[in-house]
Write a protein that binds this DNA or RNA. Structure first.
Lengths: 340, 340
DNA sequence: CTGAAAGCGCTTACAG
DNA sequence: CTGAAAGCGCTTACAG
């Protein structure tokens, strides 16, 4: 049988002090004599004592309004997508840097979000970040009751209590419209991400409305589900038209890659010369020599950092109002769009 | 000010029962009258009561040897690599399915592993999974003291107490050697992953030794760091040789993609005709129409599931011995290697 | 600066 | 089946 790991009483006894003293020694900023502290540390080291974070959070729960469990719940969708794993990594690193711990839930549909949130609340997380999904009004209330701040990433809701950090999708769509009109494309198509998905909707509306403002119009619209395969399939349909498009804007880079593969292999087209392709996100592959995809970059590092900052502010001060933070996308001109 | 969420006493009072009864009602399998239980549930619903998982784990810690905190620590490396995000997703889903919660730590070097482990232990995780990294002997002891099982994924150590799940890297390397010799390649090169990395070492040794057994030899060796860019750069060097290789085996698919881009764009080579390329892992992009990369597939789903099973067995029965589980890689023949 | 004691919200023998 | 009570390992006023 494994004998239980040492607790603060074991250390106290061995060091000849009270248990309170041990507790203080491990709580930065508490009043304790330097001599006592070092003695306690020495003994703790020998016994290989580690403070029990679970017990600590049980105690602090009572008084401390700020950090209680030290855990932040992170809900992620489409984790296998390179863009989203990049986001998770950024969140994870940023949170770790702040001494916070991430309780992760990978969901495959919005329906799973509420359940994940429920579990997070049971675990007394100090805050929640939800990437590319929203929560129900009911769970928003639940979080409010628990005093647990929530920040949405890549999404927003009408609920005034929920913060949101995202890129300006509508504006990003407009930028692409301008680019394709400026370069004199005549049959401009759009391949949408998942149906009814807000991010896609905003990009598409910005794109289509700006096209109209510029006196152009959307030639064709097709739809995928944000995967390479779906982009590839949509391109096959579009390029089989009697009059195929001369430009395709995709709601995401991954789909744009599918389009490029289809155009080059299936139709022997030259990208940019015969067909211009634009993506959104700026994933690593977008800059690979074989792609050189023109796209709208999301400043992921800055955005995730800001989301973490907003969360922490609200954790430290519950009176803090919810915030909405919009980041402009950046047009990255590479080689997949013809010059004029 | 937010008023505190209800606890079991609040529910007990409102339902006219004891706090113990409330606790039992929420613990499956405890003796309680159906009538009492349903009354408690109704009241709990009205008050929006959720059991406090932190408090629960404080209590169960004393008696229950099995699940204590309900949390499993997962340490991942290179999260931005598509193969690794796939692994994390698989772990996350498998653990969630078992009712476990994942405490995530994303590390960027092996040096961070021990610290992550230390934090996990403080949080009383019931088990730990470490993907593609190892732990120090000191932390292995620490885990043993806490009675916390550890399973290594893609790695192994000499420590008899640490379980390991991985693909047969050595054998995988041999399979590729056989393939390239069978198809009569004459100048066979290898691009290694990170220096001294055990996964790479095993693949390379299996590859090189089998080459020799077959009367062939390694023509050239170069090295990257598992990224696309590094594979691309290594290919540039290799293909600039007066006598460039006619086959390149890469320690990972991502690097192989870099090789393909370099060969096609920089050297106008035809993949398979002028140059055969083989990868390892079988990431999604390997099967994209433009790549059709021949590779060794790792059965990720089965492997992660097995790792979770081993972990849970050990969590349920501390007497359970550590296990090592090796999975054979599967040669996936696509179009990137010439037929003869 | 230090210690005794209450309390965080549960679970679980122990009686009844 | 049910309730009173102890205990999980901490933190934190409160006295001294």
């Amino acid at each position: 049988m494994v004998n239980r790991p040492p607790n603060s009483y074991d250390v106290a006894k061995a060091a000849g002090v009270s248990q309170s003293a041990v507790s203080r020694a491990f709580s930065p900023g508490r009043s304790i004599a330097e001599k006592t502290r070092s003695k306690i540390f020495k003994v703790a080291q020998e016994l290989d004592y580690k403070p029990n974070a679970i017990a600590r959070s049980m105690s602090t729960a009572r008084t401390n309004t700020t950090q209680q469990s030290g855990m932040v719940g992170v809900i992620v969708t489409r984790l296998e997508d390179p863009f989203f794993s990049k986001i998770l990594n950024a969140f994870s690193r940023a949170l770790q840097q702040m001494g916070l711990h991430v309780l992760l839930f990978s969901v495959e549909s919005e329906a799973e979000v509420d359940n994940a949130l429920y579990e997070f609340l049971q675990y007394q997380v100090d805050g929640v970040i939800i990437s590319s999904a929203i929560l129900s009004q009911k769970m928003a209330e639940g979080c409010r009751q628990h005093g647990t701040p929530v920040v949405l990433y890549n999404r927003y809701t009408k609920d005034k209590g929920i913060s949101s950090v995202r890129v300006e999708n509508f504006e990003g769509g407009r930028m692409v419209a301008n680019l394709l009109v400026d370069t004199h494309h005549e049959r401009i198509a759009f391949i949408a991400g998942a149906q009814g998905e807000p991010t896609n909707r905003d990009r598409e509306q910005g794109f289509a409305s700006r096209l109209n403002e510029r006196g152009a119009e959307l030639y064709k619209r097709d739809e995928g589900d944000y995967t390479f395969e779906s982009g590839h399939a949509a391109a096959l349909r579009l390029l089989s038209l009697a009059e195929p498009p001369d430009a395709i804007f995709c709601a995401s880079d991954v789909m744009a890659l599918g389009v490029i593969h289809a155009a080059k292999l299936e139709f022997k087209l030259s990208i940019s010369k015969d067909l211009s392709v634009v993506g959104f996100d700026d994933i690593p592959a977008a800059s690979w020599p074989g792609y050189q995809l023109t796209t709208i970059r999301q400043p992921v590092e800055k955005m995730t950092q800001e989301a973490v900052n907003i969360l922490i502010e609200k954790m430290e001060n519950p009176e803090q109002k919810a915030q909405t933070c919009l980041f402009p996308g950046q047009l990255i001109l590479r080689e997949s769009v013809r010059k004029s």
